[in-house]
Write a protein that binds this DNA or RNA. Sequence first.
DNA 1: CCAATAGTGTCTGTAAGACAGTATGCT
DNA 2: AGCATACTGTCTTACAGACACTATTGG
Lengths: 272, 272
Amino acid sequence: MDHLNVSERAAVSPEVAVSTVIFSLRRSTCEPSASAQLWIPLVRRTREPYRGQWALPGGPLAAHQSLQGAAAENLRTTTGLVPRYLEQLYTFGGVDRSPTQRVVTIAYWALVREDESGGDALFGTAWGARTVSSQIRDDPNVAWFPVDSPQVREGLAFDHSNIVDYALWRLRNKVTYGQIANRFVGETFTLGQVREVYEAVLGRRLDPANFRRQLMGAAGLEDTGEYLHGVKHRPPKLYRYVEPEPRAEQSEAEQTTNPSGTRPLAQEGSRA
Amino acid sequence: MDHLNVSERAAVSPEVAVSTVIFSLRRSTCEPSASAQLWIPLVRRTREPYRGQWALPGGPLAAHQSLQGAAAENLRTTTGLVPRYLEQLYTFGGVDRSPTQRVVTIAYWALVREDESGGDALFGTAWGARTVSSQIRDDPNVAWFPVDSPQVREGLAFDHSNIVDYALWRLRNKVTYGQIANRFVGETFTLGQVREVYEAVLGRRLDPANFRRQLMGAAGLEDTGEYLHGVKHRPPKLYRYVEPEPRAEQSEAEQTTNPSGTRPLAQEGSRA
DNA sequence: CCAATAGTGTCTGTAAGACAGTATGCT
DNA sequence: AGCATACTGTCTTACAGACACTATTGG
């Protein structure tokens, strides 16, 4: 009967790992006219299996490390960046994921902003300028790839291409409602910039007029009174986000797209 | 550098367990007028920690068992029932979840139909009749509880009350769109029966007229031509569901509520 | 006839998408 | 002036919710 409960026996447990899909927004060329694209950092494997192939940043879970903590650690080690958003994606535990031993991988996905440590912002005072940047670590075994590239979609180690696919799907669903896009932009921003984020994530053009209405209607936007100059047309207003309700609890483990926005959080911190 | 990749070192991994929240629909009384409610089976712990308390069915992951396979096994062992729906919920890995040792629990949630093995259907030829039933195993350490009960909402072992809360939220979101409610009803059914499922899950009454329109518009419903008799009013039509597209692949690991219905599946079977 | 549910039709408010049109900067 | 983008307003369509009304059984 005791096999029905979480057991305290020292069973032969599979290896537990945490991997993270880290999305950032960049332009493929230095043309300001080029539309932004999603990129992710990958790490080259230095040992078997899949030696030499690219894989998601990740590693085994340390004994007294929380899952989310491990994901944040992946992010910091690989990119030196701080996550603007971090959420558990799914747990992959197929028996044959790794040819050598059983590994259960808890996958997370994260959003970062390019400009957070050194270097120009993607949406800085002017568009573009510096686009492939913030390679804080000059490690040759870390590199950024566009999520659209065949390298990413098919060529990753283990089942990591699958994981990226799934993370991308999740991002697209999340961005439709709610406050996800603002994780890509800076403190102040124009509506055009936010719209460009949506267009990059969703992969299609959006009507500026309708987009404005939706965003103004729903989100906690505040007019800063400032304008963005240096563009070669009418200068747009700068906005900033305001937190709707500053409750003490910070949600994390939120999981599922829901129409009405954010909600329930299977607690994950120290006790969940 | 190698700590960035999934490692093949024999690290000291935490215990890996799989637990399952199993929803079924029942009436609290034998009155046909009483509205249906969600119930889940729990298992009483026979050892420390939390000895004597109720917990979700679950247990350590066996070496060559898939995650979903383990969840299905939980279900079969506890209830003898076959899942009509089974999906990964979330992975709980907080350092202090268990007082004795580190346990990472991959939680699943499932829907079952009461009538699947022996006994009358909940929605059989007549309403009600047999409501607390299909206790296939006469194990005193297994019992069904209404999800609303304080026992379930607060009194479970570990963080299992949290897990149930989260599963309930997920179910409510999933049922809004898509083909979830049909997992609770039999082969043929009336629209009133499906509506009752929605009402039980969502916890509020729905307008019969509007509900009909919605369901007829979206889902693959087929009029059987039959009517349900034995009711003390106008006999309703019996319908059946038709699969929209019988592709070979069966999805499983689908995760997130999305407005447009079913979609992407992080593959889980033998390779994910 | 009455009670109760099945099933149909209509109205209204909200919101999304299409799109015309105005405003204001730069070259 | 001409262009590019910001920003405003309007029209249409779709759909959800409210609700009136008819249909058909059992008691």
